[in-house]
Write a protein that binds this DNA or RNA. Structure first.
Lengths: 200, 200, 200, 200
DNA sequence: AATGAATGAGTTTTCATTCAT
DNA sequence: CATGAATGAAAACTCATTCAT
């Protein structure tokens, strides 16, 4: 009896939580954290203002929940993708493609994260979650270019990272108008082909 | 007499206006637009809250003034730098270096602009100013790569643009810890040397 | 069968009601009425929020129930204690000691009542219950001092009442650190011995 | 010029601050801290809600300001009054009378303080201010009864303290209906006359 | 009888903006 | 031109109470 009721309650909780997280992510991403009110979130999630506080202790806790969730998901995804590859070139190719795939599939989240990254005080409450992710990413790049026998792996990793972030930035701003797949292909060629594609 | 007095007033006016713009730029850039109060700006600019409204009709007008000013300055700078170059390679080199130089010299402004770019409603009030700038920039890139006989000038221009923005993004986040000059050198080589520097 | 089940239900009901009353009393007394939420009470009583409303129509009804219960108990106690004494001196002695005993045994309740007594609007809903109690208490004091042939029984009763309330106040604030028994002894001597104990 | 304007502003500030403090004191004292909203205070003080925050950082800061102000005033008053007396009996007489005088003149404040003393968490934010006051008071009492050669000065000081607090409590509850001056006289006699006044 | 999800009115707090001087 | 006191609308948050199950 009690079990049945409990299960039902759990489901209700989960559904509401999901609705709130989704609504908040979209609004935060589009209009910014400070610029989004709990009222707006509640309206979009189709719940009452008060209910939000049943699930998240504060607006900031809600933000952290979003970031935590997305980073966890993202981390798993990329780590999986990295497992076994025949050659470092293929590996680099997948690093780029998988990352962009993840960005495409989590458009709103990346928009939010990019937006957050410019607000010092808000970022502070999320910094720890993001910092680790970044370090891991650069480390992976350096390993790759070392395997590829690049003359300066660190430098190449940084440049690749910058180019990827730039592409993501443009993609995030322009959305599907931006030729992200083409850019990815181009990027991979630039970083793996001995002859530059840029000059004839 | 009157003239002298008038001139002094004008100078004071300019000085106050300048102080407000500077203070606001720094605070907006560091903490975000929404997160910065008029009180804070007034305190930092060492003027009264009320005085601000003598110079700018609203907080949003102040924001627009900052963006307008910086974009105008930036535009002049880059356009100047582009004038006469012996070869397109040199020209590309200068495009990259001058842009980064501008970012370095207007760190706060770029920080602000990057931050703003993620807040749809605020950006709306500034969008038109930025859009033109962007278009011009891409056009310039395409021209350059055409002169350089790149197989796909548009693609190369996009990739260069993305890489430059990525580098700027990292520089803006990390400040002087980021090896922006080294990155610039590297970037130029990648885009102008027939043999890739990435693979040995 | 039915009877047995009914009895069990009644017991459960009593147990839950008791748990709620105890939890609420402690929380109200410690943190104040307004400062205590139904959630806290429910958690402390180990029941659900909703169940509380099966037993008490509102938070205020719960408060009234607590006060009513404790006053009734207290009244019985003191009245019992007052029955037959050989001398008015002994009677006064018992009045003091029994009252303090009651306070010691109902510490939380007295704490609550003392706390409530300063909140006009809340007190309104409880006032009538308390007023009667007070009147009875003073009447008793006057009777006693009359029997004791005090020159001004009313005055003495008031002074004794004030001193007792003062001692109770201190006891309530300090808890068992306060030497309430010693104070009681002292108080009785002061009011029954012809020679003052205060000056040597 | 500037000076004149500044003086005017200071006066405005002072007046508003005073109005807020007075309104808040009365409401806190009558209805309790938690039970009083900023809106009510603003309405009573005839100012806008927002203005309160120009003067006090928070509702709690307002409370502390009230307590600090009253304790400081009270301390000065009593300390002054204690200076030079011909005999310890006269000194005790004045201790009692001056204290009651202070309570009468700061009725609202004492009502508030008595009310606060029962709410642990609120009291925490004010405790330090009050604790010192209490210690000083008891110390004074012990000194007095030592000079008066009471057999147990500490005990007598405690009893006097309790009686005084009890009288104040009743006075605070009943207001001017309570014969506080008569009680004071009676109290002094009880504690200074060798023969008890209670029994004929 | 019992649960806890959901509500909404009310509370504290913030801040762009106005205005008297 | 300059000041900062004052306002009020909107934001974050709390909580007694209701209700479907």
């Amino acid at each position: 009896m009690a079990t049945k009721a409990k299960r039902r309650f759990k489901e209700m909780r989960l559904r509401s939580e999901e609705k709130i997280l989704d609504a908040a992510l979209e609004l935060f991403a589009t209009n910014g954290y400070k610029n989004t009110s709990i009222s707006e979130i509640a309206k979009k999630a189709d719940i009452s203002k008060g209910l939000m506080y049943n699930y998240f202790a504060s607006k900031n806790a809600l933000l952290r929940a979003i970031v935590t969730k997305a980073i966890t998901e993202g981390h798993n995804l990329v780590q999986h993708a990295m497992e076994d590859y025949a050659s470092p070139i293929l590996e680099l190719e997948h690093l780029v493609l998988d990352t962009f795939e993840h960005v495409k599939n989590n458009f709103q989240f990346w928009k939010l994260l990019t937006s957050l990254s410019h607000q010092q005080d808000i970022m502070a409450s999320v910094q720890d979650l993001v910092a680790e992710e970044k370090k891991w990413s650069i480390q992976k790049g350096i390993e790759l270019f070392t395997k590829l026998k690049a003359p300066n792996p660190r430098q190449s990793a940084f440049l690749l990272g910058a180019a990827m972030d730039g592409i993501m930035l443009h993609y995030i701003h322009m959305g599907d108008e931006y030729p992200i797949d083409e850019m990815a292909k181009n990027l991979i060629e630039t970083f793996t082909h001995p002859a530059s594609i840029h000059l004839g």
